[in-house]
Design a protein around this nucleic acid. Structure first.
Lengths: 203, 203
DNA sequence: TTGTATTATGACTTTAAAGTCATTATAATA
DNA sequence: TATTATAATGACTTTAAAGTCATAATACAA
């Protein structure tokens, strides 16, 4: 196996893999399908990528780099923590929705789910929802009773914010909201920022 | 294939699968290994579970039911939204740490990671950390400048809180904190509650 | 245009794990 | 104890996808 250096074909394979992941998910992704999607022979894929693992790694890392750069550029234009966070959240959400089918797979096909077939996936998601609703009821009664309206380390805070953004997207995906208007996206961003800055308490 | 109704053996297969998942993760779990772990023949596993999918589904759902019941019981003893949430968070964290190796697999072997080998997993986790640190820096400077210290739907709020708890655990797992003292667990619970109630802003 | 290097092909090999089933062992019953 | 029903076995079959490689096509250089 010699490594070939045709950047166009390399990118073709990457983008074909990406499209396939959007269409059929990770678990059904095979090297045969990748080759077929790219319109080349399977052997050719192996001229550009050592193995399937390397291909997946490149798909994920190139996607991440694009998103990260975009967010960094946007944030750099802002001053002050709140404005930076606000920009970061907006940009991140925009990016997720512009690549919604990719992120749908990334976010929803979690480990548990990936290894389950359709029916079991559904019951998995039902359980997730049951738990969320249970908490939802608590929150609701706290709101009704007028009760609701950091010592957090920075890196930990970062993880927390990322997870809120991701969770917001998952929530929308689970409720089949795939075509949000700019207003809905704006509202999501505000909700997340507000939660992260002020929590759910009143006052 | 006739279905056999020996509850002990059924549970034996479930617990063996669970142990295996803790030890080797989902991706390496095979029916041969399950049988070996349980000390029975592979065919026997199929007397109790239709297929691998059903086995995994039962492992996950039985784990969830146990956790959910435990949390419900604990929360039922409290009055008021804040107290209920506080109890819920504590109980959830306790449960996660009591079953830390199981949840480590569940939480860390996300879709992307599951299909990657060791080296690619590491770079995946590095990217996750890079992004978290980037946000961390923003938060840090906001704190330095004294800047930091809802309209959220209940169900969505529920998802958000679950994700904060999960993320807190992931953060500890990624930093190899597997044996937290009761004090550390208590601190985690407080941090999450505080974040969820008041956010990171000052005042 | 001829020879060499590079790139591409896809049939084939290998590997791995799911799922089956004829056979055997054990327990229950008469 | 003999007979039947239930449970267990593990070698075998099947399936699927990763990865290889001898051969062919194309681009490039002399």
């Amino acid at each position: 196996m010699y490594m070939v250096e045709n950047i166009d074909k390399y990118e073709l394979i990457l983008s074909s893999s990406r499209k396939l992941i959007e269409e059929i998910g990770f678990s059904a992704l095979t090297m045969d399908r990748v080759a077929q999607k790219a319109g080349i022979a399977k052997g050719t894929v192996y001229l550009y990528f050592k193995d399937k693992d390397e291909l997946l790694e490149k798909v994920l890392s190139s996607g991440f780099e694009r998103m990260f750069k975009r967010i960094q550029d946007r944030v750099a234009k802002e001053n002050g923590g709140i404005n930076k966070l606000k920009a970061l959240i907006s940009e991140n959400i925009d990016h997720i929705y512009e690549n919604r089918y990719f992120f749908k797979t990334i976010f929803l096909d979690e480990v548990n789910v990936v290894f389950l077939k359709k029916k079991s996936k559904e019951s998995f998601n039902l359980r997730r929802r049951r738990y969320a609703d249970f908490i939802g009821e608590i929150i609701k009664s706290g709101i009704d009773s007028g009760e609701f309206r950091g010592g957090l380390g920075p890196a930990k805070g970062g993880y927390m914010l990322v997870s809120l953004i991701k969770t917001c997207a998952i929530y929308n995906f689970l409720n089949d909201r795939f075509e949000p208007t700019p207003e809905m996206i704006e509202k999501d961003a505000e909700e997340i920022l507000n939660l992260f800055l002020h929590g759910i308490s009143v006052k």
